[in-house]
Design a binder for these strands. Structure first.
Lengths: 194, 194, 194, 194
DNA sequence: ACAAACGGGACCACCCGTTACT
DNA sequence: AGTAACGGGTGGTCCCGTTTGT
């Protein structure tokens, strides 16, 4: 029973951190706000994260990439063709973004940009996180019938656009960049399937 | 003469801020570091930026968007077709990024992501800055022969990809995402020119 | 007028620090207590001591050694022979210690012992401070007629005993160690004068 | 068997504490560092030291005074006259101090100075510890032929000098203060033996 | 005897904005 | 146009003691 609690405290901190990092970024998220939002105890911070805030950042980024990869997989699971899956993915993300009041962007990008030039640890975590998400996309495209080399190329392109469109959509408070990209890549992937 | 000096001090602060924001982001850049890096006087901060750090942020973002728009225009000026220009743009940015030790990313994106959900002033400045850069791209594409409506769509798509590829390139320390996108959009723009 | 105030704030902080370091040592003296005791503003700490607590420590140690050297000189000024001066010095220190409720020991020794193995900066400051005080004693002994080489030896011996007796007197809440040492060195110095 | 283990763990913690207190003092020595250095388990702290850090401090000081008293006795055991013993004592301590990289000073003085004005418990422990060491010296001098009253006086003087010279030697990274004092007291004790 | 987590609080560093004065 | 100091506040880290459960 306690084991559940222990897991829960650390996990709850990470989940809250992931949300706060998405919204306000790494530096603007303080431990104080984190414990207030998550309802977890101050005093256990150092116990659960002996590596300090950096360790929290790494954990949050990892959680974010897991969720992102799962989101990709979910879109492919719900559609018949890879091309439709890509479109659905972009559309669902656009919807979720709008529903959050344009607040919940990519859980990796903000922290990555803030820390890539100052914290090697977080920079590597960001790289791994992007690679994992992109890897999920490559796997799904290949499974969907795209030739492996082309799948890798396409995934890099699509994922780049995804990240950029997510930023533009958030700043412009508009789904358009994501929807446009979704439509464009639907046909591009369809071409690759022939 | 004095007016020149004042302008110069302010301008120097903004230029240094633009560089530091690109590298470390908004919150991780303090006035102290700024005056150390720029060699400008402490005491003039409030005089030149009565609006505080936010005003500095707005100015830096504006400077960044001017430079980005000029960079786009430069690529189109140096090539014959719009499709070649897009490719050149991505390639040149990739080169510049690598030359900076993968440190100098987009001057708008980092600050935008950090502040979009907390500072309306900076959020609006980011939106305007993205719009200006994207607008330059639309103008060039139209001037290059792309049909206006398609030019707007293409510009949104290309710019989205540009922003995302810039992030991935920086985090992965690789030009590939930018080069891949450049190549892809060269043919897409070429299609639009027919 | 303001110049006076400025001097006063930093100087007041140092004076209070010297007192607190004497009483409780370096690590047990916090900035919070310091500003409370001295009535100086929190916000100016970093302005007056950009080097942080270490810089405060160095300044306090320097002040302490100045006062100690002045105390030595004062004893020699008030007596006719060097031997009587040494005795008077030990006696006056013993009185002062008792009057302070056995709280105000050596302003250098505590900080020195706490930091000699961890802060080179403070270790050097301690060494300089001891050297200055001991140097004052050498100068006075020489001026009093002791042969220079013997004066240096005697000063080292007397100062060692002074520091140790101060500790024992404080811990035992007794003037005896200091008085005993004073009496012993009176005759030793008298021997050196023949 | 279990009893042996328990004793050993506690004893190991005390021994490590004694070393760390000598080097860095009481306040700069944390439980975390202690368990890391000693390799003893976290969870046993409260079991072995229900009185908290203060109890550890008392135990370390007691251990220190035992070792110091034994060191004194050892010097007297290895020499024929009390005067030679005193000199040997100072010389051996000077050697040991230098061998430790000028890090291992008196196991009592640092903690004593840090806590004498804030923790009555530790202050009393320090007083007892000094008294025990000094008492060993008195006993040896008396056994060596010094008249009891003079032995007490001499011991106070010598021990004062010992403590002070140990500080100066450590801060100056020089054996000189200890050697000088040893030589001086050799003749002083020799005088007392006549 | 040990382990894991809680829990509040304190540490020093540093932040940004403002004021008084040159 | 620039200086120096003020001023409150928060940053992340770490501390020591306690509790709960093996």
């Amino acid at each position: 029973l306690e084991h559940v609690n222990e897991l829960s405290t650390r996990q709850q901190m990470i989940a809250t951190a992931e949300r706060l990092f998405r919204r306000h970024g790494y530096h603007a998220t303080s431990w104080r706000v984190l414990v207030e939002e998550s309802g977890t105890p101050w005093g256990s911070i150092h116990h659960h994260f002996p590596g300090g805030k950096e360790e929290l950042g790494v954990a949050a980024i990892e959680l974010g990439s897991e969720q992102a990869a799962a989101f990709v997989a979910g879109s492919f699971a719900r559609t018949e063709t890879a091309s439709a899956a890509v479109r659905l993915w972009f559309e669902k993300v656009a919807e979720a973004l709008e529903r959050s009041g344009w607040e919940l962007g990519c859980p990796i990008a903000t922290v990555a940009l803030e820390t890539v030039s100052s914290s090697p640890t977080l920079a590597q975590a960001s790289e791994r996180a992007f690679a994992r998400t992109q890897g999920a996309l490559v796997a799904e495209l290949t499974a969907g019938g795209v030739e492996p080399d082309r799948a890798r190329e396409l995934a890099t392109l699509i994922f780049s656009t995804f990240e950029g469109a997510l930023i533009l959509a958030r700043v412009n408070r508009s789904r358009e960049p994501l929807l446009l990209a979704g439509a464009q890549f639907e046909s591009l992937v369809a071409d690759a399937l022939r």
